[in-house]
Design a protein around this nucleic acid. Structure first.
Lengths: 327, 327
DNA sequence: CACCTATGTTATACGAAGTACAGTTTTTCC
DNA sequence: GGAAAAACTGTACTTCGTATAACATAGGTG
């Protein structure tokens, strides 16, 4: 049973805030006598004052802070000799761990489990058709059916699962046709987005990436694909378009990751194609880059389909998440 | 309180099946002594046997059918002299009303309320920002919060509502920017789809439509727009693309309907543009039609934005569904 | 800081509908 | 006329759709 990818994501905000304050008091970042005020803390944590209140109450009980004759709380056990330090908490550089920060950003259990389920559901589809039973998934995730249904409804909207005629949840199979359609869509939308993005690309960053490509072994085709999306295509000033491009790529890249995990060799010459593309983007009219992107996608689609066929031959049904039962 | 657009849609299947059988018995289509078997009835109704069983039990209680020494039920009150008629029910041409047939197709309360909510939520957005409260919507629709949350989650996925930072549901406002983005998307996707659709268009039907255009006063720009989508663009052999085009148009056409309801004059010359377009599609290379479609969309976008500005001046907040409260 | 409101989530329950299988009736074919 | 095959029913089991109550959390406001 998994509760979440980020274990802190489940905790209420006041716990997270309390945790941050506690650690900063113990580490000395918040000095004895420092005046803690609700409002500024809420501002730093990007939340409202209510959870800050709860956190402070808890810290008071734990004896880490104390009240005094004035507004707010003082850090430390208290005593007559402590002089209140009144400074803006924003100047103090509180240490806020990455995980806590993330957990503060997102709300809703379903968000925390969604990504994991999405990835697992998407990547199983090369291996055929799978059935998902709500209660099994709920047990597996350690959440209620309500949350599971929320997740599944959204997966359905994004086209990753569907309902059988008897209204059971079905994922896959990923057919050559589906893949072709998705690449066809990429060929329509991504060059168009790149053209729109033209004036908004931060060329220095692209150039820096281009420099590293070829020497840095950490730069895989996947990395380049994502970077191209983020640095160039996603700069298009049309959020709806970018959103569609993202959601269209979702299944393809999940499958890609799954294929890599399966040990399929990645082809080296796509790196060359990316280099050419990045070069065109930085040094030539954007239209030529768009044209080349279209060409690149048509090649990639063929390669992708060829790799899928290999898997179909392997038919090694690796290990799927237990809630995914092959049909 | 509204329960549904189609009042029968809420009823369980066995009720619908019972209703059909009852009416066909009373009208005499099902003669006295006819042997009613579960399986065949289920096949006719396109369902499983379970609801048919329930329906038959109910009819038995009502005295419209009776059991006999054999499998199934006999139509009529019964008596020693009735001779069982064994014939395939499919030969009998049961009268199945349109509404019942529709209701049998769809399942799930949320489906029945979804369209209505979608339309209302979409069309309010020209008038600014609206808040939706789950419980109010639930009361209004006469359903539980469960269903409402399902509907809202899907509206969110389709980009018609969003969450405020305090995670309240917000619809709108429809800004000029949003509209421009959506038309930009149309300009990218619809010509591309039209090109793909080229070989699959049933030209006879398009020609028939073209004939009627100009003479038949029932052919409005809206009608033509929908027809163009269905007859030509949606014929593209890429379901994902067509799906995206549909969902992208959703908000635009809802707003369009709202504007017409508001009494804004429709411009007559778009009909001419549609005529030109249909003519190009039927009699010329598809590329020229694509090009013209792109041009047409850019004009339409400008007109659309101009009409929206008029409404902004009117700022007459007509009557919205009661669960939509302006911010 | 207290109160009010709305959302997120859980748990539970029940009805509706599909599936599978065993057992029975009807049909078919010799 | 009788046996095998096909069709049908009864029934238990499973899953999904929805309702409902309840509670914690968080935001807003005076």
């Amino acid at each position: 049973m998994i509760r979440s990818v980020n274990p802190l994501a489940q905790e209420p905000r006041y716990e997270l805030i309390g945790r941050v304050l506690r650690e900063n008091i113990l580490s000395g970042v918040l000095p004895q006598g420092f005046v803690l005020l609700e409002g500024p803390i809420a501002a730093v944590m990007q939340t409202s004052r209510v959870p800050v209140q709860s956190a402070l109450r808890q810290l008071l009980e734990d004896g880490l802070i104390h009240r005094f004759d004035g507004r707010g709380y003082l850090v430390g056990q208290g005593g007559a000799d402590v002089i209140p330090i009144r400074r803006d908490i924003r100047e103090l550089e509180l240490e806020i761990p990455q995980v806590v920060d993330e957990a503060l950003q997102t709300r809703g259990t379903w968000r925390h489990v969604y990504d994991k389920v999405e990835e697992e559901v998407a990547s199983c589809q090369i291996f055929g058709e799978f059935r998902i039973v709500e209660t099994e998934l709920a047990d597996h995730l350690g959440v209620s059916r309500t949350v599971v249904r929320d997740v599944l409804a959204r997966l359905q909207e994004r086209g990753l699962v569907r309902k059988s005629p008897s209204s059971h949840w079905i994922a896959g199979p990923l057919t050559a046709r589906t893949v072709s359609e998705k690449f066809e869509l990429r060929g329509i939308m991504e060059p168009a987005a790149l053209r729109l993005a033209g004036p908004h690309i931060r060329y220095a960053e692209v150039e820096a990436l281009l420099e590293r490509t070829g020497t840095d072994p950490g730069i895989t085709p996947q990395y380049l694909g994502d970077a191209l999306l983020e640095l160039c295509i996603a700069q298009a000033p049309n959020t709806a378009l970018v959103e569609m491009i993202r959601s269209n790529r979702l299944l393809l890249s999940s499958v890609d990751r799954a294929l890599i995990l399966l040990g399929l060799p990645r082809d080296e010459d796509t790196i060359e194609q990316y280099q050419t593309l990045l070069d065109l983007i930085t040094h030539h009219p954007i239209d030529s880059a768009c044209e080349y992107l279209r060409y690149h996608l048509s090649i990639t689609a063929r390669r992708y389909l060829a790799r899928m066929k290999i898997v179909a031959v392997i038919d090694e049904t690796g290990s799927f998440a237990p809630y995914l039962s092959p049909q």
